[in-house]
Amino acid sequence: MNRYMIHLNSKRCIGCHGCEVHCKTNKRLPVGPILCEIDHEPLKPVKGVPKTEFSFRSCYHCDDPFCVPVCPTQAMVKREDGIVYVDQEKCIGCMACAGACPWTIPQLNPATGKAIKCDYCMDRLDQGLKPACVTKCTTHALKFVRLEVV
């Protein structure tokens, strides 16, 4: 069961793309892969003010992930707490996972030749910290939510 999610408060988000760079620098990613994406709708006037809604997307950490079973080396793993991550030791960079994912979430890290994707910054979580994107969001618009099992 997926136990976490990242929630974006669109009212506070200013589309500054900080989260994307916070994520990349935390993982020391080169130019190329971007693990989370901020997007917005085209502007539409609401009571005379052109407005928009923002969205944040990293990886859905699917309950039944498409990317996991296709991996020929069992490098794509779903942890007990629901996090889907790439075991860098095992990954051979074939990118079958990206092909299987409906949103092509896994990306190739040109620096290592292996797949990379959002892992909810599990190394940080395991230290009791929050993900990089959430921690450093310019306006505190991102929240890391722990889902309760009922």
Partner: peptide, 24 residues
């Protein structure tokens, strides 16, 4: 440099894209 964040005492860790890109 492995991590740059806004001073937690003043900015509660918040930083902008440029601030993080200081590493680059």
């Amino acid at each position: 440099v492995t991590w740059i964040e806004g001073n937690p005492h003043l900015l509660d860790h918040a930083l902008c894209a440029k601030g993080s890109a200081g590493m680059a």
